[in-house]
Simulated assay, not measured.
Amino acid sequence: MPAEHAWLPRASCTEACLRAGAAPGDRAAVIAARVVLRATLAMVLLPALPLLAVPLPGRSHLQRGYCRLMLRALGVRITVSGGPIRNLRGVLVVAGHVSWVDIFTIGAVLPGSFVAKAEMVRWPALGVVARLMKVIPIERSSLRRLPAVVATVAQRLRAGQTVVAFPEGTTWCGLGYGRFHPAMFQAAIDAERPAQPLRLTYHHRDGSASTVPAYIGEDTLWASLCRLVVARRTVAHVRVESLQLPGADRRELARRCETAVRPAVVGVAPVGHALAA
Rank of each mutant, 00 (worst) to 15 (best):
A264V: 08
A183S: 13
S242Y: 05
H61V: 07
I78S: 05
M120T: 07
F104M: 09
V94Q: 00
L200M: 12
V153I: 09
L245C: 01
R227W: 06
A108T: 04
V229P: 06
P137E: 09
L37C: 08
L88H: 02
G272S: 10
A188Q: 12
A95Q: 04
V230G: 05
C67K: 00
G127Q: 08
L18Y: 12
L92P: 11
T40L: 14
D249S: 14
T40W: 13
P263W: 07
A269E: 13
I85R: 03
H61R: 14
W172L: 09
L45M: 09
P47S: 11
G272D: 14
A264W: 07
E241D: 14
H5T: 10
A236L: 06
Y177S: 11
I106L: 13
R199D: 07
E192T: 11
E218P: 00
A195N: 09
A269K: 03
P270Q: 05
Y177M: 14
R86I: 03
A73I: 00
T14Y: 10
I138M: 00
E258S: 09
G127V: 01
V265G: 08
K117P: 03
R27A: 14
E252Q: 15
R199K: 06
M184S: 11
G107P: 03
L51T: 00
I31H: 02
C13A: 13
V268S: 02
E192P: 12
E15H: 09
P124Y: 04
T105Q: 14
V266S: 04
A11F: 12
A248L: 11
V230Q: 15
V129M: 08
S142P: 04
L228F: 10
I85Y: 01
A236M: 08
A3F: 07
G127C: 06
L243T: 01
G75E: 04
M120Q: 06
C17Y: 03
L62F: 03
G272M: 11
G83D: 05
H61I: 05
G178A: 11
V98M: 14
A20R: 08
L143D: 01
A118V: 02
A151L: 02
I138W: 01
S141C: 13
S210H: 05
R86P: 00
G90L: 06
T162S: 13
A6D: 14
R250S: 10
A183N: 05
R251A: 04
R156T: 08
A42G: 07
A188E: 08
T220V: 10
C13L: 12
R131P: 00
E192F: 13
G272W: 08
A231Q: 06
P24M: 07
H61M: 09
P9K: 15
G178P: 12
V35H: 02
A195L: 04
T40P: 00
N87I: 04
G83C: 07
W100C: 08
F114N: 03
E119G: 11
P9N: 09
A32M: 11
V44I: 12
V129F: 10
P246G: 04
R256F: 11
G174E: 01
V212Q: 00
G107L: 04
